[in-house]
């Protein structure tokens, strides 16, 4: 019991601290690649602190759903973070929810975020909610197929079990089924975290945005919670990707040395994945909304191929 609590505490601190840094890192890398200086790695922290030190304006038309949403978005993202192995194979909450709980808890946060977007009666909020729910619905089967491919290999939907099996076969990612599943999940990651070519996190042009349109009416501490939650969600999804496919550096126990080594490996892997995301973002233009389903269909087919190729190889 105490072990679960201390591990959860450690992982919680890691989640809350690494998530904004990762967002800042991606922004900076992207700026460098576009020969700009960029805001610096620490900008996301400064944003959150700034927002926490501001007053709030609540739209007159909004109900209690609008105020409950930030807590749910933040709560689900952090809770999910405790179910995912980060530096060791053992996630503190892995007994209480596996990969299905992760996907559905994130869906719970999204459900309320979409309600929050519609709650104010603003047409931009409705637009964002409609698009977010549409895109996530189409991304879901691709995501599940890719996850199932890995889960069937490990015979478990428990993330710690999946990580343990992955550690046993470090070079498994070279198998065609794993590569296909990784590609599918990578596309889903792009869609779920609202990045180019699906959504543009940097824009405030009303007609092109999805996530930003939903949170348009939020301000101050509520906005801080939502942004923080969104960056944690991004970290969680990226962790899912790096630790299930590339389990290097994951050790089975929570000793200081193991966690230290694990942390170094973990951060390095995240950095590499961030570089990949930045490359994709910089070399692609944002897709028209009705082109996005085609991209997600590609992901679905990759997932299906991954599943089928587990038979062959």
């Amino acid at each position: 019991m105490t072990e679960v609590l201390t591990n959860s505490g450690l992982q919680l601190v890691l989640l809350l601290l690494v998530a904004p840094m990762l967002s800042g890192m991606i922004k900076t890398l992207k700026a460098r690649l576009q020969t700009r200086r960029g805001p610096g790695v620490l900008q996301s922290y400064r944003d959150i602190i700034k927002l926490l030190r501001k007053g709030m304006v609540i739209p007159e038309t909004a109900s209690w759903i609008f105020s409950a949403t930030p807590y749910l978005v933040f709560g689900t993202a952090t809770l999910v973070g405790l179910m995912i192995p980060m530096t060791t194979t053992h996630a503190p909450f892995s007994l209480f929810g596996g990969v299905l709980a992760v996907v559905y808890l994130l869906a719970l946060g999204r459900f309320f975020l979409a309600l929050g977007g519609l709650d104010t009666g603003s047409s931009f909020g409705g637009l964002g909610s409609s698009r977010e729910m549409t895109i996530s619905a189409i991304a879901e089967p691709a995501m599940m197929l890719a996850i199932f491919t890995v889960a069937l290999g490990a015979n478990s939907t428990n993330l710690s079990e999946m990580a343990k099996v992955a550690v046993g076969q470090s070079w498994r990612f070279l198998a065609p089924s794993q590569m296909l599943a990784f590609a599918a999940l990578f596309i889903v990651l792009i869609a779920e975290t609202g990045r180019i070519p699906v959504d543009n996190p940097a824009t405030h042009l009303e007609l092109t945005m999805i996530h930003e349109a939903m949170v348009l009416e939020y301000s101050g501490p509520y906005l801080a919670l939502i942004e923080w939650g969104a960056s944690i969600k991004q970290l969680v999804l990226m962790t899912l990707l790096v630790n299930t496919f590339f389990p290097f550096g994951l050790s089975p126990d929570w000793t200081v040395r193991a966690v230290g080594v694990g942390l170094v490996f973990y951060l390095a892997k995240l950095l590499l994945l961030a570089c990949l995301i930045v490359l994709v973002e910089t070399t692609n233009a944002k897709l028209r909304l009705f082109r996005v389903p085609e991209l997600l269909m590609v992901a679905f087919i990759l997932g299906a191929l991954a599943l089928i190729s587990t038979f062959l190889f």
Binding site: G55, M56, E60, S122, L216
Partner: peptide
Amino acid sequence: FGRKHGPVWD
């Protein structure tokens, strides 16, 4: 820092 109700920004 306060919390107030206002019209929808939109």
